[in-house]
Amino acid sequence: MQYVPDIRTIRVMCTGRIDPSMILEAFLHGVDGVLILGCREGECHYVTGNIEAANKIDMTSRLMKIIGIDSDRLYFGHLSSAEGARFVELAEGFTKRIREIGPLGREIKEDKEVLKFRLEAAKAAVESEKLRWVIGKKTEFMDQGNKYGERFTRHEIGRLLDGILMDEISVKEIQLLLQERPLSVRDVSERIDLPPHRVLRYIAGLRRKGVVRLEGTDGVSPLYSLQG
């Protein structure tokens, strides 16, 4: 390991055990990149572990793109245990790329707080049951089909994930803000990267679901807070 001093290794039993929230947690702790190395395709000890890993990592990198973090900061490489040279090659290549991009947050013009906030929302999103469920279904959707027996193409899965992720991130951001204190639509919109009418629509949807409630009004602006 002395070849690549910037890297800290964490061992896991199987890449399939890595949860997207762990990756985001690492970024929250300030790492500049996460390199995940696992067995070669088809050589997984637990049969489908690295396929599941690929699905989860793909989702995480989509999520990173959405919150404005360069998705090159996350890389999934494959090698077998006997390939020491390849390990060094992958690790060096990765550190070189991270050096080029610079420290975490460079790509976001805003301050550290914003970065932290977005990462927290992203983490809350991936920890939600919805995303865990959908990502867990990905392989099934492509091979056997969904509840209606319709099979999905890779392209369609991508579209679907992007849509759900963007919604989920926005909803989690709104929820995180409302947790602090009651806010108006404009307040929320100023704090997150979303125009007021979209915030309003999400809030209307959340009220419908009983997640958000009306707290009162401040002049002409209704204030909202999280339900109990």
């Binding site: 108006s184 639509v185 404009r186 919109s189 007021p196 009418h197 915030v199 309003l200 809030i203 209307a204 009220r207 419908r208 009306l214 009004t217 002409v220 602006s221 209704p222």
Partner: peptide, 15 residues
């Protein structure tokens, strides 16, 4: 959608 509150669609403010 707004639970009967008269607000405008852009920012949810009362016109």
């Amino acid at each position: 959608p707004y639970g009967g509150m008269l607000i405008r669609p852009f920012d949810g403010e009362i016109p």
